[in-house]
Amino acid sequence: MVDQSAVDRRFTPVTAHVEPGRLRFFLDTIGETNPLYRDDNAARAAGYEAALVPPTYLFCLEMMDATEPFEFLTALDIDLARVLHGEQRFDYYAPVVAGDTLTFKPRVASVTEKKGGAMTLVVVETEVTNQTGVHVADTSRTIVVRNARPS
């Protein structure tokens, strides 16, 4: 079971390039048609350097480019079969656009037992910076670990 000793545990940073072709594939997959995400000219007309990434793309980009996408589960000895997705949050501080190279730095922010120990909520927060070192976003994901019942 994950306990408080996991709080502030850091994991391997992930570097990912916001490649326009992969971004278009993601947009097609989710059915996103907003020109600010698809068209550099439309994005520039709105004051951005290039096409923007949609909010949830950061989560996908971090997972796709990680050498070990579930490193935190392995490191915390969490069985993937016992994991449920709780929630995710994205806080943006600066635009993220096609062509950016991002660095994701994840850490365990909190561990909370619920339902008398039947489940544990683990919050992993990730700081995201761009190629110039600008802190562009923070992401947060909460996973629910269904704990094994004592024998």
Rank of each mutant, 00 (worst) to 15 (best):
V111Y: 01
P106S: 09
A118I: 01
V128I: 13
A118S: 10
L80Y: 13
G133T: 04
E71S: 08
R89Q: 15
F59A: 15
A75M: 03
Y48I: 01
E125L: 02
S140C: 12
L102T: 08
P95Y: 13
H85Y: 02
M119L: 10
T74L: 14
F72Y: 14
E125H: 01
V134L: 03
F104N: 01
V111R: 06
R82G: 06
M119N: 04
V108P: 12
T67V: 06
K115Q: 13
V136T: 14
E87W: 02
E125P: 07
V53N: 05
L84M: 12
K114R: 14
R107E: 11
D79S: 11
P106G: 09
P106N: 08
L102I: 05
V111Q: 09
E87I: 01
V83P: 09
Y57I: 00
A42V: 11
T74R: 15
Y92L: 15
G133D: 11
E62T: 01
N41D: 13
V134I: 12
L80M: 13
A137N: 09
K105W: 00
A66Y: 05
C60F: 11
V124W: 04
T74H: 14
F104S: 01
M63L: 13
E125S: 08
G86R: 10
T132R: 15
E87L: 10
K114C: 03
T129N: 04
D138I: 04
A137C: 10
C60K: 08
G117I: 06
A75K: 13
V108C: 13
P69I: 03
A66V: 01
T132Y: 14
G86C: 03
E68I: 06
E125G: 01
D91V: 15
H135T: 04
A43L: 03
R82D: 12
T101G: 03
A137T: 13
L84N: 03
E113W: 04
D91E: 15
T129K: 00
F72G: 00
T129F: 00
D40N: 07
T112M: 07
E125R: 10
A75V: 06
K105A: 15
K115D: 12
T139Y: 04
V97L: 11
K115R: 15
E62Y: 02
L61A: 00
A109V: 05
A94Y: 02
C60E: 07
T103D: 07
M63N: 03
Y92C: 09
L52A: 02
V83K: 00
T112C: 03
L58A: 05
A118K: 14
V53P: 03
E113D: 13
C60T: 14
G117S: 09
G86S: 11
M64P: 00
L58I: 12
N41F: 00
D65M: 09
P95T: 05
V128N: 01
F72K: 05
E113R: 12
I78Q: 10
P69W: 06
A42D: 07
V123G: 05
M63A: 15
Q131W: 08
R107S: 13
A51S: 09
E87P: 00
V53Q: 04
R44D: 03
T112A: 15
A98Y: 04
P54N: 09
G86I: 06
A118L: 14
D138P: 06
A66G: 06
T67G: 11
L80K: 10
A81L: 09
V124I: 15
F72V: 10
V96Y: 07
